[in-house]
């Protein structure tokens, strides 16, 4: 008999949870996307929750593409409100968003991120040029006017000035926005050929390692394979300077200043995308965006700058705030 009672109770509990679920209105902003943006967005979310009478927004990761895919799943409480991205939204993504009913996509640019090459702190110093990276990574390289299978096994074979170390490159996999910048601003720049596809064909002999997880995984690789050179965000490198040694590109050391001024070539803007349809129904979205864009939060001297974000300049900031205020929707 007691068993029956327990069973009855259990069923009552289950039916209650089932009935209560759809009635719950979400009052917490839900964010997901780029793992580069994640630390910045989480800090802003936390400060926002502390300063305003809204709940602290929840920030998930999953990469720029993963975040935008979730973002484009539709309009409604069980879809995310904001997608973080370390690259601009693609027209194919705008289309899939529109198909799912997400038409009001508001793009907010909030800063820049530098992409740095770093190696194990105990190993040699790299003074890289885009051309070196291309020669190290491509499946086929030009030699004596002909394309041959990549013969290089050591950096010193590519250029005398580079250390005598085995070539092992740890790069982000294609789910990361960083990958695109790496390809565009380093590999293509170093390739100088018209055939982009051939330039971006990477060698398959185990010297190029793609990481789909986050930078800690890249760091772990570098610690296991001391010769490897990894691709990191500036912020991550800054936090781990005791383990990593940064490489210069074209003779320029990546710092907040050189990236902000554009001197250091490999940087990219960081974005988040706001679902306009959710503004008003999920409380706090507007305030969150305004707070994020305020000088104190993401400007010079802010905590975000301290952990490696390159802030917008005044003009860009005003533009970003104005665009959001006007609800300027991204177009294809």
């Amino acid at each position: 008999m007691r068993f029956k009672k327990a069973l009855g109770l259990a069923f009552a509990a289950v039916s209650m949870t089932a009935a209560a679920a759809p009635a719950m209105a979400r009052d917490t902003i839900q964010v997901a996307g780029s793992s580069t943006v994640l630390p910045y967005a989480s800090i802003v979310a936390e400060q926002f929750g502390n300063a305003f009478p809204f709940n602290t927004p929840v920030v998930g990761s999953g990469g720029s593409s993963g975040g935008l895919r979730q973002f484009c799943q539709g309009v409604g409480e069980n879809t995310i409100d904001i997608a973080n991205a370390s690259r601009a939204i693609k027209s194919s993504e705008i289309e899939s968003c529109a198909n799912a009913g997400v038409k009001e996509i508001l793009e907010v640019r909030f800063g820049y991120d530098g992409i740095v090459f770093a190696s194990n702190a105990s190993k040699g110093t790299f003074k890289l040029k885009p051309e070196h990276v291309y020669k190290a990574i491509a499946a086929q390289v030009p030699k004596d006017g002909k394309m041959v299978a990549n013969p290089y096994t050591k950096w010193s074979q590519i250029d005398k000035s580079l250390p005598d170390q085995e070539i092992v490159l740890v790069i982000p996999a294609s789910n990361h926005g960083t990958r695109e910048v790496f390809e565009e601003k380093v590999v293509l720049d170093g390739c100088k050929a018209d055939d982009e596809e051939a330039c971006l064909k990477f060698r398959q002999d185990g010297r190029v390692i793609e990481i789909s997880g986050d930078y800690t995984e890249t760091l772990a690789r570098l610690q296991a394979q001391a010769d490897a050179v990894g691709v990191f965000g500036l912020g991550f490198y800054e936090q781990n300077r005791d383990r990593l040694k940064v490489a210069t590109i074209n003779g320029i050391t990546p710092t907040l200043e050189t990236i902000g001024s554009g001197e250091y070539p490999v940087s990219r803007p960081l974005f988040f995308y706001v679902k306009g349809e959710h503004i008003g129904s999920i409380p706090g979205i507007e305030e969150y965006v305004q707070y994020f864009l305020s000088e104190d939060v993401s400007g010079f001297g802010s905590q975000l700058e301290e952990i490696g974000l390159i802030p917008l300049n005044d003009e860009e900031r005003e533009q970003a705030i104005a665009d959001f205020k006007d609800r300027k929707v991204v177009s294809k």
Binding site: T28, Q30, V31, S42, E46, T56, S61, T216
Partner: peptide
């Protein structure tokens, strides 16, 4: 996801212990 609030009901966003380990190692 990164959740800064302590959930008070099963409907509120939250992480779990093993996931927190995963997040911290990253």
């Amino acid at each position: 996801a990164f959740v800064a609030n302590i959930p008070t009901t099963p409907f509120e966003q939250s992480t779990a212990l093993p996931v927190q380990i995963y997040l911290w190692q990253g």
